Simulated assay, not measured.
Amino acid sequence: MAVRHVLGLSGGRDSAALAVYMRQYYPELDIEYFFTDTGKELPEVYTYLNKLEGFLGKTITRLNTQRGFDYWLAEYNYFLPSAKVRWCTRKLKLDPFKGWVNSMLNQGDVVYSYVAIRSDEEHREGYSSHHKNLIVKMPFREDNYNKAAVMDLLNSSGLGLPKYYEWRSRSGCTFCFFQQKIEWVNLKERHPEAFEEAKAIEKMAIENKSPFLWSEGEPLEALEKPERIAKIKSDYEYRKLKERTNKPVNPLLVGLETDIDELYFAEEGNGACNICHK
């Protein structure tokens, strides 16, 4: 029997900060870092993971390299995943992790899994253990680390934020259904080839009578029309201005906000799962 320590990375802010935190404060732990790859990640995610590997001095194990999104889309008869039916989370994130960690548990190992849920995320529950020897730990919650502390960790380490935070609020697949409409517009402008792929997948799904679209109530072909893009941008700026006007200024947090923040995520993308977006 061995004691193993594992930490999942999403390519996002919080999980990267937790990796930095564990390296700085628990250097004696031999932590195994992993990333569940859907095959549909943003280029900025891979760039950031490579940068993180350099900082950690360790290879990040890539899980799920054999059966990516395209395989499971066909298995589900080209029905798109949605907030109501998250087959992508189960097949591309949870199951690969379970398969990997079960190989350790079946040997009788005790596995500590570190999850990046902050102290200011009371609404998040995280991954529940499915085995008595799998122990889930939340260091940020235990040590009272909030978003500001996470940002400070990343900035002081020299890693900073992944580049996609300039136009997107979270990590996740290029066509994640939790995206805001403004983020779909940004994807089209930043990565037009990924937007075109998402549009083609959605068209195929519609032909196969999928009950869901990528963006609720609106196909991407309608969303990308110039007049619709102008309206989406205008609505987004209005919401952002309204939120900033109504929110009291905290001088301790000035400079820590990202351009697209969770504050503006409530209307269209709320509820994103921990394992994809941390």
Rank of each mutant, 00 (worst) to 15 (best):
R62N: 12
V45R: 01
E267H: 12
Y127P: 05
L256A: 03
W72Q: 09
G12C: 14
G126E: 00
A19F: 02
E221G: 03
G269F: 08
D37K: 01
A148M: 12
R228C: 09
N106A: 00
A83T: 09
P43F: 04
T36Q: 14
A230M: 10
M22G: 12
L80Q: 05
A19H: 06
R4S: 14
F69W: 07
S113T: 14
S128D: 05
D259T: 01
A2V: 12
S234E: 13
M22R: 14
S157R: 01
Y238F: 11
L153E: 00
Y76L: 07
F69G: 02
F55V: 07
M104E: 14
H277T: 10
E41T: 05
E193I: 11
Y165S: 01
D14C: 11
C88N: 10
E224K: 12
L153D: 03
A222F: 06
E142T: 01
Y114D: 01
K98F: 02
F79E: 08
G217W: 05
E216K: 13
E142C: 13
K242G: 02
M104A: 09
T61N: 14
K225P: 06
Q180T: 04
I31F: 09
A272T: 02
K51D: 02
E221M: 13
L92M: 11
K225R: 07
Y238H: 07
N155H: 15
R13C: 07
R13L: 13
